[in-house]
Design a protein around this nucleic acid. Structure first.
Lengths: 141, 141
DNA sequence: GTGATTGCAAAAGGTTTGCAGGGAC
DNA sequence: GTCCCTGCAAACCTTTTGCAATCAC
């Protein structure tokens, strides 16, 4: 395992185990988001004995350390991703694809929100829109 | 049952049953949001035999008709509320209370989002922030 | 009268927990 | 060496589903 991936865990006081390191690697080396089950499948490729309960417990540890954030997108399942600046998620109702807006957009929205919500100290901002993505709109109209 | 509550169902082609009417009444007469279980408890006060599965099926019918929207707030459970203009939810990590910003704020944020997400046709916008509300911040600092 | 909806009960699905052995520090 | 973490299996909880009787239209 590359130190590049274990270092963040050490820094944050997360005990390093192969399970956690590979789960973190899967998350940190992609700007995508994954369900617990997707992570399980991916990491089992390198750690065949991995249990789904360990995935959940590792995600809890990583989230507690602030490395991972959990979201829910509409009626969909829990998804996990490496923490980054807040960015809106766009969920296509037709193809199910989830795309991200860049975090500049998230920052502007966060600014607008904070201006509106005086007295509330925002830690985490979650934004998602459901609708129809450009590709699917083309296809059907 | 007051026609005031049955009329929206009729208009939208939702077959009117006591179960649906009372569930809709509970939602429509509050600007709060409820879990399925909370609705169940409330409506059982007037319909003692009500089953939780009926609550879910009724909510599905009401949501399908556009009268109700479902949200998820962070790691919390599914919540349902009467449809209104999009409005950000602020979830306090300390006391768990969920407050709303007014929909003008939601509208402004929606405007900002649409400007950023060209090609994506937004149907539904969900925004929530987790953090610490003014009351809790006072208490602990 | 016909088809949708309900209550009931059972199933499903995702997530959590208890425990004993093994691993990180 | 100590305490934490993992695998395993079972439990849990919310949500969904099948079915026959009932109700809305």
């Amino acid at each position: 395992m590359d130190r590049h991936f274990t270092e963040p865990l050490r820094e944050r006081g997360v005990r390093i185990t192969p399970q956690r390191a590979f789960i973190w690697q899967a998350l940190a080396s992609s700007d995508d988001h994954f369900t617990a089950e997707e992570l399980w499948e991916r990491v089992r490729a390198v750690l065949p004995g991995l249990e789904i309960s360990t995935v959940y417990r590792s995600l809890e540890a990583l989230a507690g350390a602030g490395l991972v954030v959990e979201s829910r997108v509409g009626e969909g399942p829990r998804i996990f991703e490496a923490r980054s600046a807040p960015h809106p998620h766009l969920v296509c109702e037709k193809c199910g694809r989830i795309s991200h807006l860049d975090s500049a957009a998230g920052g502007r929205i966060l600014g607008a929100l904070e201006a509106e919500s005086e007295g509330f100290e925002t830690h985490e901002l979650h934004i998602f829109a459901t609708g129809v993505c450009a590709d699917c709109a083309e296809g059907t109209e």
